[in-house]
Simulated scan of single mutants.
Amino acid sequence: MGLSFKNIFAATSLIAFGILGASSAQAVPVTWSFDVCSGCTGSSFSYTSSGNTITATGFTNHTLSTHTNLFAKHNGGDENGVGIASDPTHDDEIWGTSLIRIDLGGANKYTSLSFTMGSTTGTEHWEVWGSNSATSGLTEVTTGTTEGSFSLPSTYEYYFFGLDTNDTHWGDNVLLASLTGTLTNLTTPVPESSTWAMLILGFFGIGFVAYRQKGKPALRLV
């Protein structure tokens, strides 16, 4: 069955709108779950999600001068996440003055940052610091005592997770469960109105020419 002008116009319009729609698509958030890692040995673990890699590193205290081994915990429920292997309670969680540093690979690289904590009950009080230096200049960004989802500012390259400095209860420990963020360079700008019009008219013209050519007899060489 031959194509009518109406069908050609409809097809070219759909192609145009499909291209324009794809160009204005929004970036999809990336979530890293800290109960799994690459290798799971040593003081640093790498986590990759949707092709984006971040790195966790363990430290014994806030001087950030001595590394300590991490532990990827996967016991179900709220006992999933990354902790510290030297935890004296043998829970393998963040305890005392220990810290876990998360390296995002650049400041302002992600927007809409958020995280979840695990194994947080009773008097356990966690705290998060941010810095654009790997080993100094820590600034408190948030603190809490529950396991919900919490927002982070997007201005830092490094985030440090540990117990609140005022939490001196022996046996208090927590887990860093997950981190979510959206890459800042994934959102393509929406085309201007003039660009929309020109692209649609261009596809309409292609369809019109194809329709006119369809009605002309083919030239044969004898």
Rank of each mutant, 00 (worst) to 15 (best):
V82D: 06
G105K: 03
S112P: 01
G106V: 09
G96Y: 10
A107Q: 12
G81Q: 02
S112E: 13
I102Y: 13
L104W: 06
A72M: 04
G77I: 02
N69I: 00
G96L: 04
I94N: 09
D103F: 14
E79N: 15
L64M: 12
H90I: 10
A107G: 06
P88A: 08
V82N: 06
T97C: 03
E93P: 02
S65F: 01
E93V: 04
A107E: 13
F71S: 15
F71Y: 13
A85R: 11
H67V: 07
S86T: 14
G77L: 07
P88T: 09
I94L: 13
I100H: 06
N69A: 13
G77P: 00
G105H: 05
D87V: 01
G83L: 06
D78M: 04
L99Q: 12
D87T: 02
E93S: 14
L104V: 08
G96R: 11
G83F: 03
I84C: 07
N80I: 00
N108P: 00
G76W: 07
H90E: 12
D87I: 01
K109N: 05
E79H: 13
I102M: 15
D91A: 12
H90S: 15
S112V: 00
H74P: 00
G77S: 10
G96V: 00
G81T: 02
R101D: 04
N69F: 01
D103P: 09
F71W: 03
S98A: 14
S112I: 01
N80W: 00
L99I: 14
S65H: 03
G96P: 02
L99K: 04
L70M: 03
S86I: 05
N108S: 15
T68N: 10
I94G: 13
W95K: 11
H74E: 10
S98F: 03
A72N: 12
A85I: 04
V82C: 09
A85V: 02
L64Q: 10
T97G: 08
L99T: 06
G105A: 08
G96T: 01
T89P: 07
R101N: 07
